[in-house]
Amino acid sequence: MNDTTAETAIELIGVNKWFGDFHVLKNVALLVRKGERVVICGPSGSGKSTVVRCINRLEEHQKGVIRVDGIELTGDAGSVAAIRSEVGMVFQQFNLFPHLSVLQNLTLGPMKARGLSRRDAEDRARHYLDRVRIPEQADKRPGQLSGGQQQRVAIARSLCMDPKVMLFDEPTSALDPEMISEVLDVMVELAEEGMTMVVVTHEMGFARKVADQMIFMDAGEIVETGPPAEFFEAPKSQRCQKFLSQILQH
């Protein structure tokens, strides 16, 4: 909070969203500085995924302002494309392209959206596959990989687009327990390299390790924010206390 010189990566001001009559996001305000790691947690249905999905316009917000790297997100296709080119996204269900090989999954965006040559795109893809530690799987189909491997491919796929910000929407929730750490390890490395990250997760060990800012959401509102030490040791609101006691018990 003392660091006012760091540039803003993502800014949400008074963001509101409704699904029909249901008010999913209520005046959400959020500031993410460059290089900062923000972890969002909260009970299911609290709107945490929706916040992340609004940032790259997978969902449309109806009121308020969203700015990414200074670009305001409006309905206009240009701003959506501009923001998506800065923002990488990792989904709970991986969403790899099942009909393409791992390598093709990684080169599709760079070649078609960025106009890279096949050679350059493949070099880049192999570099990132190396970084997520599965270089040997390049020619397999996603369906032949384990969940943990698929999610690491998905992370590599996003990194191939050179994003300035990475969004993670419950990246380990669909994984078998023994595969969670291999994905989290990759995410920790990414954090250590200074990537700006917004992560929706219930992995509180990961949050303690990498988060600069914790956010607790409930019923479409940000109820509590703070640095992890404070957040975990002395949560102020009752709802947050209750939530933490529930997920930390086990």
């Binding site: 998506r84 080119s85 269900q93 392209f97 599709l108 965006g109 959206a113 960025r114 996003s158």
Partner: peptide, 26 residues
């Protein structure tokens, strides 16, 4: 699945590229 379109969008593909390279082949 909708997630395929979303993933295509997040790697920068436009509508026609998404159809041509991701949705229609499947």
């Amino acid at each position: 699945a909708r997630g395929q379109t979303e993933a295509a969008q997040t790697v920068g593909l436009n509508y026609f590229q998404t159809m041509r390279y991701v949705i229609l082949p499947q």
